[in-house]
């Protein structure tokens, strides 16, 4: 099949970017979207032009590296798929396809389609864990956890940290990403001791990065390749309100609302 690609090219964060047009012939409908970029890159290299830089690694939808807005949608037209899982048979022969990086203040462009997502790591560092040192864990079956609870926690834990939620949000909010981790840990018995402290610290960090605020558009849920529900944002908000109320009552910040 034939394709016309308009790809965002930007040499560095400091320089301005632009869409550049590439006409492709003989693309196999069985190839993946990234394989089309591979093919284009091989052609560019042989012409002595610089290939398009894009993040990718696992190419099976789990590492969260790949990150492209395709025809205006993060990860492209197919729901519940990452860019690397998107195959060309989902496009019409002769289609025109626009490819650009995640656009968000908190994800500055590094080069071409590569952005800096280290803000996500800093949110996790601010509290996205259970404080347990190696060696100190009790016997695994000593705390039963209901199947439904674990399934709900797992639904949140499947987040791959790709950032599509932020790219899709008109405000560039990281609420879904942050809520997924807060809910995953907050639902589990092991996560209770730090539950309210965690939500305060993570929300605080989210605000310090350049993420916008959540105004309930729900675009994040639509774009999430793992189908993570915005119900977790409500969970986070509930915990946040309880935690803030308690902080008001106890100026030292210790949380007692468990």
């Amino acid at each position: 099949m034939k394709l016309t690609l308009y790809v965002w090219r930007q040499k560095s964060a400091a320089q301005e970017g632009e869409f550049r047009r590439y006409d492709m012939q003989e693309v196999s409908p069985d190839s993946s979207f990234l394989e089309v970029l591979d093919l284009l890159n091989e052609q560019l290299i042989l012409k002595g032009e610089e290939p398009i830089e894009f993040e990718h690694d696992c190419r099976e939808g789990i590492c969260g590296c790949c990150s492209m807005v395709i025809n205006g949608r993060p990860h492209g037209p197919k729901k519940l798929h990452t860019t690397c899982q998107l195959h060309m048979r989902n496009f019409e022969d002769g289609a025109t396809v626009y490819v650009e990086p995640w656009r968000a203040a908190a994800f500055p462009v590094v080069k071409d389609l590569v952005v800096d997502r280290s803000s996500f790591d800093r949110i996790i560092q601010s509290g996205g864990y259970i404080s347990v040192n190696t060696g100190s864990a009790p016997e695994a079956n000593s705390v039963p956890i209901g199947k439904e609870v674990i399934d709900t926690a797992m639904d949140a834990a499947t987040c791959i940290g790709c950032g599509a939620c932020v790219a899709a949000c008109p405000n560039g909010s990281a609420a879904l990403f942050t809520a997924a981790k807060i809910s995953h840990l907050g639902l589990l018995a092991q996560g209770q001791p730090e539950r309210y402290d965690r939500v305060l610290r993570m929300v605080d960090q989210m605000d310090k990065e350049l993420f916008g605020s959540c105004t309930n558009h729900g675009e994040c849920q639509e774009a999430c390749p793992k189908g993570i529900s915005i119900k977790y944002i409500s969970m986070m908000n509930r915990d946040f309100i309880r935690a803030t109320a308690a902080r008001v009552m106890d100026p030292k910040g210790a949380m007692k609302a468990q």
Binding site: Y129, A137, A140, I150, L188
Partner: peptide
């Protein structure tokens, strides 16, 4: 055996039976 203990304490959501055990 220690690995499973450690991971569960960290919050790894391993599959469970209806009784709540792994």
């Amino acid at each position: 055996v220690n690995i499973i203990d450690q991971c569960v304490a960290q919050g790894v959501p391993f599959a469970r039976e209806y009784g709540g055990l792994l």
